[in-house]
């Protein structure tokens, strides 16, 4: 082997060490997303790997950490990872969805929806998502489609889907379900619901964990507060509810 590249979710220091021991090479981590891919990378040939960091901006792409107004933030500050347009790798638009396309950009920046920190040398660290996207086993999974599917099951009255920390997959999909009257919240029903999603939607995004609850936390406008459900999982108090998102490995980052 001459090279191994890895991306899709953060590469731990352990895997970096394993790569050196097994293949005698440094695994290069890189970063991107479907809309704007391969924009940050490591390159052991010319720069040392920093465990916990994805690498530096790939030449040709202007990548920065920006605040909510799209202003570039200095090193060491948590913000959103953004890419300046135009950029040859960047997508054209969302198919027949101009509203989503507009929301993806802020002025000259494409917003990745990923939070990060850049250090003095330009290395970027991935911190987590700024929304409810679940990153599990390398897949980016949106809760909306799973919730829609769950709602099709005859026993389900309400459903909310979040990612909960998992040592192997980074996160796993967990569904909180309010049952319709007359259904018993038992393991057989949980299994049936799991298979229901697996068969209809996709075998890689069914809820591995299901918890039956009496009610879901809702906003005044009736929107499910997924963050509250997530925080219940990680045992965080509501005091942190206004904080920026948790890191995807479940740790509350000190720099937040």
């Amino acid at each position: 082997m001459r090279t191994i590249a890895s991306g899709g979710e953060p590469l731990g220091a352990e895997l970096l060490t394993w790569g050196r021991q097994t293949f005698g090479l440094t695994i290069n981590e890189f970063y991107g997303q479907t809309e704007c891919n391969m924009i940050v990378s490591s390159c052991a040939a010319i720069m040392p790997a920093k465990p916990g960091h994805m690498g530096r901006p790939v030449p040709g792409h202007e990548v920065a950490i920006v605040d909510e107004q799209g202003r570039r933030l200095p090193p060491g500050t948590l913000g959103q990872i953004a890419v300046k347009r135009p950029d040859p790798v960047m997508f054209l638009e969302y198919w027949y969805n101009p509203q989503a396309t507009r929301q993806k950009f802020l002025g000259e920046w494409l917003l990745t929806g990923d939070m990060g920190i850049v250090d003095e040398e330009g290395y970027i660290r991935f911190v987590g998502r700024n929304d409810d996207i679940i990153i599990s086993a390398g897949y980016r999974i949106g809760p909306g489609e799973i919730e829609d599917c769950l709602m099709g099951h005859p026993a389900v009255n309400m459903a909310a889907v979040v990612g909960v920390p998992d040592p192997v997959r980074h996160e796993v999909v967990k569904a909180f379900i309010v049952l319709k009257p007359g259904y018993e919240p038992d393991t057989a029903l949980a299994e049936e619901i799991r298979n229901y999603v697996k068969d209809r939607l996709a075998a890689h995004e069914y809820p591995r964990e299901i918890e039956f609850v009496d009610a879901l936390p809702l906003t005044a406008t009736g929107k499910i507060m997924r963050r509250v459900l997530r925080e219940r999982q990680t045992g965080k108090s509501d005091d942190n509810a206004s904080e920026p998102p948790r890191s995807t490995d479940g740790r509350q980052d000190a720099s937040m």
């Binding site: 001459r2 090279t3 191994i4 899709g8």
Partner: peptide, 16 residues
Amino acid sequence: HVRNAFLPPHGAQDDA
């Protein structure tokens, strides 16, 4: 005689 690989850390293609 593979010399280069892209390996996702966890999920390669089939989480199921």
